[in-house]
Amino acid sequence: MRLLLVEDDRMFGEALQQNLRLDGFTVDWVQTAEDAEVALSTAEYAVMLLDLGLPAKSGFDLLSEIRAQNNPQPIIVITARDARRDRIRGLDYGADDYQVKPFDSDELAARIRAVARRSVGRFSSLLAHGPVTMRHDTHEVTCHGKPVTLTAKEFAILAALMEKPGAILSQASLEDRLYGWGDEVASNAVEVHIHNLRKKLGKEFIRTVRGIGYKIGDNL
């Protein structure tokens, strides 16, 4: 799952990025509202983490601008402002959730998953299709009831495909979800991950649609 972190404090941004990566998220980090606008226009993010106390243009301004454009981008506000008035204002401005500093990174990860889930209209962390089940919270995957071990990238690709069974996802769109800025991406990286997934879950589970991309198999 790819996240956009908008945070001007260097140390905080670094520490949060490290923790979220450990949770299997791909995190792009910008330090100003202006950079966040550029990032939002170039890539698709499952959730945006927004600090309110940004220099120059504030997080509130960015938040209300995004909502004014009818952009449904899931947004979690992260801030040191704990006054009830600020929390209410943040939510009323269109934030999906609110996290006050300091916080536990596990809690933030759970909030990110919850917001991401709701944004695609799901209600549970459990995804199931055919013989395969996967849990977003524990990263457990089973096939025919037996546990399967996946790497973080494999998990991310599987999650993307299983979230919309039947939808075809292009290689570029999968790459976009998997890799943040600055990540080295080999040209055949997605193909390699798909190959490994088929080995673990069976050849028929993921189908290739020639010239377009990949989708979950229909008759399983």
Binding site: D9, M11, F12, A15, L16, Q18, N19, L22, A80, R81, D82, V100, K101, P102, F103, D104, S105, D106
Partner: peptide
């Protein structure tokens, strides 16, 4: 307010 960010940093770093 200003103490929250350094404390949040420490918490995240410790957790990491």
């Amino acid at each position: 307010h200003e103490l929250r960010t350094p404390l949040a940093v420490i918490q995240l770093q410790a957790q990491f």
